[in-house]
């Protein structure tokens, strides 16, 4: 029973794939699988980041905005100021990590609840992106090496580089959670913040790290998005944080903190990715897709909360 519950998420994924394949055989074709991977790559990368705040019963609502902001900043540097793309990407990542550190400051040092702190930075940086771009999209030159992140495939294969970046991010995320002391601390803080502090963990410092990681991975996802679309849009990341949260929670990371694993998040991302793709193939409207995703989020959190309640009794 326990193993069933642990692996239920994978069964859901398999069931989903079977249903969509029956509904439309094109779903299971390699070209479509590759298309799904390309679509979910940035979801996966940002979800790795989102895993950390949720693991400590926090949240990062600024993740979508960070994707917009890094797009505007990086594209602006490259297109308008002719900064070499490597440097532009590094500066972009520093900016997005900085947004994360600001979140960390508000949540730990100031003590603002995470949902409000990250909501305020979401609004602030959405505004900043508009100010920087004057509200206009910033197109990139075509066919540059920057296409590497979002458009290229691994040489000689049809595997997108972005999917490989996602896989590396999952590995890094899993490594942080399982092998480093930060990871142990995150679980401890999520389980019981007071006891964690009394065990010698500097909880505040860890929160800076957690939100910085979330900002960094959201930034990396933003680079992939920018490379794929070839143009920085002011609405590129709008509302995406909810998709990332859905992936993470669906992957079994408890919104009450303290439990979850990176491998679960992989499953969560694949489920959302193939759900979106499958619905598109079945000509489900955008609005209906929103309804379905919202229900999925509520059901995923609902299961988590019900199992918590049962444990408590």
């Amino acid at each position: 029973m326990k193993t069933l519950r642990k692996n239920a998420i994978w069964l859901v994924l398999i069931a989903e794939v079977i249903i969509f394949s029956i509904a439309n055989p094109a779903f299971i074709k390699p070209t479509n699988i590759v298309a799904i991977l390309r679509q979910v790559a940035f979801y996966g990368i940002a979800s790795v980041g989102m895993t950390f705040p949720i693991l400590i019963a926090g949240i990062d609502l600024s993740a979508g905005t960070v994707i917009t902001l890094i797009g505007i900043v990086t594209a602006g540097l490259m297109a308008n100021m002719h900064v070499p793309f490597v440097l532009a990407v590094i500066i972009g990542l520093i900016v997005s990590t900085g947004v994360g550190l600001l979140n960390g400051f508000m949540v730990s040092t100031v003590g603002i609840p995470a949902i409000i702190a990250t909501f305020s930075s979401q609004t602030i940086f959405e505004g900043c992106a508009y100010l920087l771009s004057n509200g206009l999209p910033i197109p990139l030159a075509r066919g540059t090496a920057f296409d590497f992140f979002g458009k290229w495939n691994f040489p000689g294969t049809i595997i997108p580089i972005s999917a490989i970046i996602m896989a590396i991010c999952f590995l890094v995320g899993g490594f942080i959670l399982n092998r480093t002391y930060f990871g142990r601390y995150f679980y401890a803080i999520g389980g019981n913040e007071e006891a964690a502090e009394l065990s010698g963990i500097r909880v505040n410092r860890m929160k800076y790290l957690i939100y910085a990681l979330s900002g960094f991975f959201a930034g990396l996802a933003g680079i992939v998005v920018l490379s794929r679309t070839g143009s920085a849009q002011n609405t590129a990341g709008k509302g995406l944080e909810f998709d990332f949260i859905t992936c993470v929670v669906l992957g079994g990371v408890s919104v009450n903190g303290g439990s979850g694993s990176m491998i679960g998040v992989v499953a969560g991302v694949l489920i959302i990715g193939s759900l979106t793709n499958g619905m598109i193939l079945m000509n489900v409207s955008n609005y209906m897709q929103m309804v379905v995703k919202g229900i999925v989020l509520a059901v995923a959190v609902g299961f988590d909360c019900i199992s918590k309640k049962r444990q408590a009794v």
């Binding site: 679980y187 019981n192 007071e194 006891a195 009394l198 963990i201």
Partner: peptide, 16 residues
Amino acid sequence: RHGALLGSSIKHNIGM
């Protein structure tokens, strides 16, 4: 409430 990290393993508690 304050002593043990109930949701973590024995090994992790000792190592904390």
